[in-house]
Write a protein that binds this DNA or RNA. Sequence first.
DNA 1: TTATGTGAACTGCTTCACAGCA
DNA 2: TGCTGTGAAGCAGTTCACATAA
Lengths: 227, 227
Amino acid sequence: MAPGPLLADTSVAARERRIPEATVARLPLYERILTDLLGAGTGTVSSTELAERAHVNASNVRKDLSFFGSFGTRGRGYDVVSLARQIAHTLGADRDWPIAIVGVGNLGRALASSDGFAAHGFRVASLFDVHPGVVGRTVAGLRVRHAGELSRGPQEGPAVPAASIGVIATPSSAAQTVADLLVAAHVPSILNFAPRVLSVPEGVLVRHVDLSRELQVMSFFLTRTTT
Amino acid sequence: MAPGPLLADTSVAARERRIPEATVARLPLYERILTDLLGAGTGTVSSTELAERAHVNASNVRKDLSFFGSFGTRGRGYDVVSLARQIAHTLGADRDWPIAIVGVGNLGRALASSDGFAAHGFRVASLFDVHPGVVGRTVAGLRVRHAGELSRGPQEGPAVPAASIGVIATPSSAAQTVADLLVAAHVPSILNFAPRVLSVPEGVLVRHVDLSRELQVMSFFLTRTTT
DNA sequence: TTATGTGAACTGCTTCACAGCA
DNA sequence: TGCTGTGAAGCAGTTCACATAA
């Protein structure tokens, strides 16, 4: 095994176990709760309290946190400051994540000016669209560029300057084309808001947010419970 | 077993088994693909093709569909028209689902004019906000009302006329307050876009869409793969 | 021959229960 | 005594493998 104890302090994730995706998905939740506690001046929190606030099981909280090391103190709980810092680091919140948003309609605009994007190191770095009425305009302090610039060759300078995440907020008919452009521009990950399955080469990360899917799932359950 | 064949055509879900939530979450995906196939004039589709398009396993597709009955024909596949209709019915897409959106900022506006909401029987029926600059204005054909009207007593007429789903698109600091108002107005389900865990009485359905959570999960994986 | 429908095996996630430490 | 950390048990979801039907 790797000589974990000899490493510098931030690389605490020395225990490189396989971390369940379900656990990763809960980390942002814990982080938010810890931020609240931090603001309230709380110094220590138990797994039970964290669990209550997150609406999950206390053992689940403890198991989740244990993947990243032993941050708690038995009989006492977790130190809010160090746990918050640890989770933020694990989620990469202490890095800079430049984002390119493609599609500056209602949704794109909402995302561009979203607080949720501004926090956690996410920085909206560039906006693209194809609609003549939008290209050239300034939105959220950025000039909207034509999506064609994404496919610019390197000799003309990188069109997407080190964008880490491409956000697709176009109509779904354009989604795959935009995905291809982003892949060609070496954007390593895509967050897709269009209700369409994307095909990308292996190695490119794709995640999906479907606004209407949740409504559909909701109406399924409403249909059952209220008959 | 129940005398399924004797029932009227739409009530095919005679086999009332426990349907896994994971299955329900895939139904909107299948429905969308079937709609595409329908538009392309395809009459029959195999589980293999459906699986390829949905990026899931073929057995998974078959098992998902089998929860609602035997809609396929061995050696042939599934009839696109009847399967699409069956899924739409299961998801409640043949009903009317009036929606109240609370919070008419960028996100609320995006949702109010979203195509995804318009389809599937979801109808944006009312808009609420508290900001003086927004209340009274007309957005997506609807006059924005003051959120206080949600708590109106019944003697003044129902403030939220039979809203089935309340959408919270406010800043997260207001989310719990709005949730309480919606519950008081007897809205049976809530779709929450604010990054905050909501507490509601048992029986009220709550689902959550967190725009920045997906980004955080993404940056977690980016941190791992690109080191 | 082709492709569904489904028990059985498997994988992953959650919860339990308790040993271990402050 | 209180609360963490974690094996073990339990549960949910996925995939396999094949009997079954057109």
